[in-house]
Amino acid sequence: MDPQVEPRPPAPAAPPLAGPEAEFGALYAAHAPAIYYLALRLLGDPARAEDATHDVFLRAWRSLSEFRGESAVRTWLYRIALNHCRNLRQRWYERARAPDPGEAFWNRVSAPDATPLRVLELKELGARIQRALDALPPEYRELLLLVADEQLSYREVAELTRQSVDAVRGKLHRARRAFHAAFTQTA
């Protein structure tokens, strides 16, 4: 057989990752959607959320030796992401934003939290959610986003937000009511 016409096996596109890089790739695949979504809704901008998610995973890689396994990997990544996004918001946003009406204002909101939320089109969902979250105090915003992750327990949410589980439950109730009121106003 002419060696020039002998079919050759296709060249591999890229060598498979091995060792820590492969493990880290699996970690990224498992947790990046949650971290990116948190960053997107806390920062309100896709490009900044992409940068923040990149930085969160880079920081995680650099601080692997400090991870003692006392919490789940997802909780550890959330902690890095929350700190990073809080710093960014403080730097970029707070100076330009209107003053926060404060928790007391939202505590007086009478919107129910048990009525269903409706949207006509799923494509409008992201923009409306962003506007509603932006109207809330940062603490409520973070609580709602963390509790929406089915993989986090209330205890883990409490650890991440540095408060008791009872405090989380109480504030969550008020946060849901506030979100309802704000979301309704975005229609």
């Binding site: 939290d113 949207v119 799923l122 992201g126 959610i129 709602l144 986003l145 929406a148 849901r176």
Partner: peptide, 13 residues
């Protein structure tokens, strides 16, 4: 589309 809770809405998003 109807969502029973804020969490359900955020998960869909």
């Amino acid at each position: 589309h109807t969502f029973a809770s804020v969490e359900e809405l955020l998960r869909a998003d």
